[in-house]
């Protein structure tokens, strides 16, 4: 596994810990269950915290805690399960979450583009993914028809700007 964060291949500075594991020093990512059970103790550690949501654990479950979290890891149990795309968008667009949204689980190269568009800024990917593959995959489409979370200007508004420029030229 390697971590790509904002397009860079980086060392993972968070440890993902199981529900029964002792907490190591430093930044950790825990399950929603552990977070709900040990919220106060975890917060008191004063180290960066992340929560991992399984498919079916909706972002609303952590909506109140968003300021406390540096990472929300969203699980793709299998690439076909696309629930987490909606979860990522809701975290960003509905709950105003500004921290890292990390794609974990069955994260395949042909989906990087979709994930980035939905607000994921970190992806745990297989070891055979190279920076070249990342670049090719995430850049497969230079245009998008629909607005999403990545702030990319959709085709519709590109068209409107083009039309506005054309009519401005005509006016001159």
């Amino acid at each position: 596994m390697q971590l790509i964060r904002n397009g860079e291949f980086v060392a993972d500075d968070f440890a993902t810990v199981g529900d029964e594991d002792a907490l190591p020093d430093g930044a950790v990512i825990v399950s929603l269950e552990r977070w709900q059970k040990e919220r106060d103790a975890l917060t008191a550690r004063n180290t960066p915290l992340g929560v991992r949501l399984k498919s079916g654990q909706e972002p609303s479950a952590i909506a109140e805690d968003i300021d406390k979290l540096k990472v929300v890891a969203l699980e793709f149990p299998v690439y076909r399960n696309g629930r987490a795309y909606s979860y990522a968008r809701l975290l960003r667009e509905r709950h105003g979450y500004k921290g890292e949204i990390r794609a974990v689980g069955n994260v395949l190269r042909d989906q990087f583009h979709f994930m980035v568009r939905c607000g994921f800024d970190a992806l745990e990917v297989a070891d055979n993914i190279t920076p070249e593959i990342w670049a090719e995959s995430v850049g497969a489409f230079s245009l998008s028809y629909q607005p999403a979370t990545d702030g990319r200007e959709p085709v519709l508004s590109l068209r409107q700007r083009l039309a506005a420029r054309a009519s401005a030229r005509e006016a001159v």
């Binding site: 696309g82 795309y85 989906q111 979709f114 568009r117 939905c118 998008s144 028809y145 629909q146 999403a148």
Partner: peptide
């Protein structure tokens, strides 16, 4: 057609 083409959120329904 345009809105649904490569919709990033709804390609793995």
């Amino acid at each position: 057609r345009q809105w649904s083409t490569f919709h990033p959120e709804f390609s793995f329904l």
